[in-house]
Design a protein around this nucleic acid. Structure first.
Lengths: 235, 235
DNA sequence: TAACAGATTTGGTCGGACCAGATAGTACCC
DNA sequence: GGGTACTATCTGGTCCGACCAAATCTGTTA
């Protein structure tokens, strides 16, 4: 059983990817009944356990509805899907974000991070500032020797750190929920503005937090977002 | 194998709940290595498949990290968790929402639904208005004969309908992501304001959408949220 | 002390079995 | 002909015990 890409891919993963592609490409329509676990197991040569587990995964991705003792049906995922569904769609499209998706993400980021910035400015300690400076310095050091995917991850972690330091753990949990979709955004962002500009922006945020200027940090975030959207527009 | 509570509870559910309690109660610390699938299976008298499946579930809840061929480790869930983690925490606390969580949810709702209201006011058709009136009428009719949980579900669906009708499917996906946590909110809301007030509020929204007054709808939403928080404060 | 090789432990997979609810077909009765 | 009750079958859900390959540990060797 060789799946060409990685020999480490499991049968479950293979099945999940196969079905994801089939569903998102429109081979099946919402409401369609998918083959039973037994039939698929026999057809693909996998165990029923694998198909069962795979269907469960697809259900958490919002792509199928499992009706016990009845069957597995393609979900109306544009109505009932969730972030996981969005992640699947983005991955299939090769990390290309539509403008609509981008606007949606940035609106959420403004809500989440804006709140985090304000909270952090109220409670930030000297250690917090020092910590932010340290990880920013680290990003600058590694920035010219890592892939853009990895760098995007670091930028995500930097902004998540704001949520963590703010002490409002609920913000961190929401932030993590948008992880995959945020990475796709950061890759685009870094391509558009360049690494140097992006890191400078991080340092500007730190200065504002150091000065306990919550409104300033919020406004800088809002301005950065509207600039990005404008630049995206006349590209 | 009798678990006293419900005879219908599966071994997998039993295991997941047990581990969820143990992890969230602090019996294990982030980074701790949990017992191997085999050991737990032997200890609890379950099959290894059950434990395996249970660990997978706990991983999607963000409570554990599974390192293949190595072991299962308790995740630093307050840093790396997601919405699923939040759902687990809320369920363990008996659907009681802390003020911090409530504020976080409402901030997100304002971002998501506020955008949906504005978009809908730009593109709403006569059919949209008629549809909203219909489902609102349905809610009024069933409101005195269903459980509060079910009614909360209807209120969630009403607000999700705003996202769907707005045509911005990304908003719907985000909205669905907050489902569980939103239900907990709506139960609280309906208890606090009463059913009649809540339904009247829905009808006010419809009038504003009919008049294409996006700002008005946004402001009404924002006012409703700040009122709710204020009422929550001096309770 | 460092590196290699084998034994052990680990999560992942598999297929066969059983359960109980859903479903559809059939025979029956009014 | 239309409704009803029964039954055979199909479904997802669960469970077990065995096997696999990779990660890890251990003890020996150079």
């Amino acid at each position: 059983m060789n799946h060409t890409k990685k020999s480490s891919i499991t049968n479950k993963e293979f099945f999940v990817r196969k079905m994801t592609k089939e569903i998102l490409s429109g081979k099946w329509s919402p409401g369609d009944r998918l083959p039973s676990e037994r039939d698929l197991a026999a057809e693909l040569g996998f165990g029923k356990t694998v198909i069962h587990s795979g269907y469960e995964k697809l259900a958490t991705m919002g792509l199928v509805d499992i009706k016990p003792k009845s069957g597995v049906y393609v979900a109306d995922y544009m109505k009932t899907g969730n972030i996981e569904t969005l992640n699947a769609i983005i991955q299939l499209n090769g990390d290309e974000l539509s403008r609509e998706v981008t606007v949606g993400i940035l609106d959420l980021r403004l809500a989440i991070e804006g709140m985090a910035f304000r909270e952090l400015c109220l409670c930030r300690s000297e250690e917090d500032i020092a910590h932010l400076r340290t990880i920013t310095k680290e990003i600058r050091e590694i920035s010219n020797r890592v892939e853009e995917d990895e760098l995007a991850e670091y930028f995500f972690l930097w902004h998540r750190e704001i949520c963590i330091l703010s002490g409002k753990s609920i913000l961190t949990l929401f932030m993590n929920t948008t992880h995959d979709v945020s990475i796709a955004f950061w890759v685009n962002y870094l391509r558009m503005y360049g690494i140097s500009f992006a890191i400078n922006r991080l340092e500007q945020f730190i200065e504002l937090i150091d000065a306990r200027d919550g409104e300033g940090a919020y406004n800088l975030l809002a301005k950065g977002i509207s600039d990005y959207l404008a630049k995206l527009e006349n590209r």
